[in-house]
């Protein structure tokens, strides 16, 4: 065993608050820890269950059954291939709401670690979001099955937007998740309040109903909800149609904005930029609140 000479060791003032840039660098340096925490989370989630990760698939499948029944059968909505439309929007929503909920309680839930071990704390909320991303990819199996069953083809052109949409969604989720995880240490109500907010947010986002229903009434204000821009991009790519012909009313009904790839990309760009600004703010807030984590927990 050898001790590294002093000159090559990083000297850090640990009493100072790191800047947002330093924090991001710190997260990158600790990417292995992040991955290990994700692995731990996934392992623990399915450790003692017989069905294992199938539980992750059952959730969207059950949602699909319930909403198809309510909207197609009870309310008689004529949206063709409702399953495809619904899943296209539900999966990114699940990624958002699931990760946000988990990251909000991530600091409080790891009080034992926070009080006794030092590591960059922001890794905790970020790891729950990463775990959410893994679930998202697992849940894509349900969507793939639905596409296979209906022999449905997504739009290849718009599918190129999906990485951008996903990154935008992750950026937005990370920004909120970081801020809320720190706030939750001081105001334990945050996580309960969030549940209600997410419920309202779900219905305010065009997931079970088409975007046009919203834009007809409030116009482009509908895009003020960052989730809307993201969700309609997923829907545009997977559902791959902007309108349908309703034989009963003999009318063409609009579903999604019949715009170019660039229009969708521009919207994503705006949301991503705003999210980035929020993220910087969230990191600053996180840094301030972090001072007393170990005492407050």
């Amino acid at each position: 065993m050898t001790v590294t000479p002093e000159s090559s060791l990083p000297v850090t003032d640990i009493a100072a608050r790191p800047s947002p840039i330093q924090r991001m660098v710190g997260v990158w340096r600790n990417r292995e820890l992040l991955l290990n925490l994700v692995r731990k989370e996934l392992k623990l989630k399915y450790k003692n269950s017989t069905l294992g990760f199938f539980w992750s698939l059952l959730n969207p499948a059950l949602y699909l059954v319930v909403f198809t029944f309510v909207f197609q059968v009870v309310l008689g909505s004529g949206l063709p291939y409702f399953a495809i439309f619904f899943l296209a929007g539900l999966l990114p929503w699940n990624l958002f709401s699931g990760s946000l909920g988990a990251s909000t309680s991530s600091i409080v839930g790891n009080a034992g670690l926070i009080k006794k071990v030092w590591f960059p704390r922001e890794v905790l909320p970020l790891s729950t979001i990463s775990a959410g991303l893994v679930h998202y990819f697992l849940q894509l199996i349900v969507l793939a099955l639905a596409l296979a069953v209906f022999r449905y083809t997504p739009s290849l052109e718009f599918c190129l937007l999906l990485p951008a949409a996903l990154i935008t969604l992750l950026l937005f989720t990370a920004a909120l998740g970081l801020a809320l995880s720190a706030l939750n240490v001081y105001l334990r109500d945050t996580q309960h309040l969030l549940e209600l907010v997410l419920l309202a947010w779900f219905w305010a986002t065009p997931i079970v109903y088409p975007y046009t229903l919203l834009s007809e009434r409030i116009g482009t204000l509908a895009l003020a909800n960052p989730l809307t821009s993201i969700v309609i991009t997923f829907q545009r790519a997977v559902y791959n149609r902007t309108s349908y012909y309703d034989p009963t009313t003999k009318k063409t009904i609009e579903i999604l904005p019949d715009e170019s790839v660039w229009w969708y990309l521009r919207n994503l760009g705006i949301i991503a930029s705003v999210s980035f600004v929020i993220l910087i703010g969230a990191l600053v807030l996180f840094g301030r609140l972090e001072d007393n984590f170990a005492e407050e927990l």
């Binding site: 060791l9 003032d13 009493a15 003692n48 926070i114 006794k116 071990v117 030092w118 007393n292 170990a294």
Partner: peptide, 29 residues
């Protein structure tokens, strides 16, 4: 783990802190 209210602390090198044994352990793993 705690950030001082004022003052500076610098240190160099990898630190291992044994404040409580097994605090990073998860019982199910």
């Amino acid at each position: 783990i705690l950030r001082p209210t004022s003052g500076r602390i610098t240190k160099s090198g990898r630190t291992a802190a044994l404040l409580e044994l097994g605090s990073g352990f998860h019982p199910d793993l």
